[in-house]
Design a binder for these strands. Structure first.
Lengths: 211, 211
DNA sequence: CGACGATGTATCGGACCGATACATCGTCAC
DNA sequence: GTGACGATGTATCGGTCCGATACATCGTCG
């Protein structure tokens, strides 16, 4: 998952670890806490060993001004052609982990770099998964209600509500996707509900495709 | 986290691994997927090594009917006195991990075994954490809006909505807690909104305290 | 000029997951 | 009857990720 996110982010610009973490936090803030350095740095090395990213000098040509202010040990990474290929491959093959909370969130965050067919497939897979969770919760709340204390039931009830809401959200996104529109539908539940600013440019697939 | 949940569940009845997983899934279905055996069994051994749980023969006295149907290798665990002490200790000391998604959910699921002061402290800690996440999302949606594509923004918007809803839910629970009522308030958002069945028995602290 | 907070890289132990393996039991179709 | 199948049941292994920790530099403000 982190591998996917790093590859995705580095396609926008070369970055060093610290920066990468900040961008990651901004982009994925809705779905998970800040990534740990204990994961980030080993992963960066792994990606480098695999040839998907490389170190980049900040001033490209190494000589010229070699140790003017004695540049700190800042390691800037950039994605390689193989890395872009790998990212595309990770998008294409959507396994079961693509539909769990974190996996779906990360994939969704890079929907602008995903083709419409795949977007649709992921949204529908996620919907199916949430529907299953919802049914499980309904079962517990229905059949096994007397075995549970009030707090556990309240937890399930709240979870059930969240499932129902997410299914509705997904339905909306799927409908938009099918009709070729971008997200942020003006119908129910949208926060920025002002009716102006409604027809944004069609999503993604723009700039920086395969060279 | 899993340690906490196992200790909590085994206070209701002795169980073997498979059963434990099923109960765990039922109780925590709202907040996480089924626990993996790859975690469960090692954890059980760890808890046993620490003296918090022990193996229990299903028919107590080992001889009598030794190999009638040649009982399968079913290992039933039960909690020890030290285990109950450990559980109480884990409830009392609420660290930062108590307020993240999983940690809070697990603690909440065992609120019936938690004293009111601790319940209140946990609910307020969780609220604070969610409020912080909410502010972070508002910042990103406000200040850095032009840097994000439509999909990323939609993700943040949906996350922000979930935060706002959870804060309201927590407010309600806190208010209930302060007024000494059980959860499932009849005000906004409660699913079982029929006005009858309103004054349930005050929560928890019942049966099976320290022997 | 020294304290402090932001920036920046790095490691280590431990928690947890997903895949896999293997064995028993009851049941239903053939 | 017998064999296929799904539920029950215990167990291990490699890999991902987290949280704590350590350490060094930079700018700023009292």
């Amino acid at each position: 998952m982190l591998e996917f996110a790093i590859l995705g982010l580095l396609q926008e610009a070369p970055m060093h670890g610290y920066e990468l973490r900040k961008e990651l936090t901004a982009k994925l803030g809705a779905i998970r806490a800040a990534i740990s350095y204990g994961t980030l740095y080993p992963t960066l090395r792994r990606l480098q060993a695999a040839g998907w990213i490389t170190e980049a000098n900040e001033t490209t040509t190494a000589s010229d001004v070699p140790a003017l202010t004695s540049r700190r040990g800042r390691v800037v990474y950039e994605i390689t052609a193989e890395g872009k290929e790998r990212f595309a491959q990770l998008i294409a093959q959507a396994g079961p982990e693509t539909y769990d909370d974190t996996g779906f969130g990360v994939h969704f965050a890079f929907f602008a770099r995903t083709d419409q067919a795949t977007r649709l497939r992921i949204l529908e897979g996620r919907r199916r998964k949430i529907e299953e969770r919802r049914e499980g919760l309904r079962d517990v709340l229905g059949r096994a209600a007397e075995r549970l204390d009030a707090y556990t039931m309240e937890l399930q009830r709240h979870g059930l509500e969240a499932c129902e809401r997410e299914v509705r959200w997904l339905e909306e996104l799927i409908a938009n996707e099918r009709s070729g529109r971008a997200p942020t539908a003006p119908t129910t539940g949208a926060a920025g509900g002002r009716p102006e600013d409604n027809s944004p440019p069609p999503p993604g697939e723009s700039r920086e495709e395969r060279p």
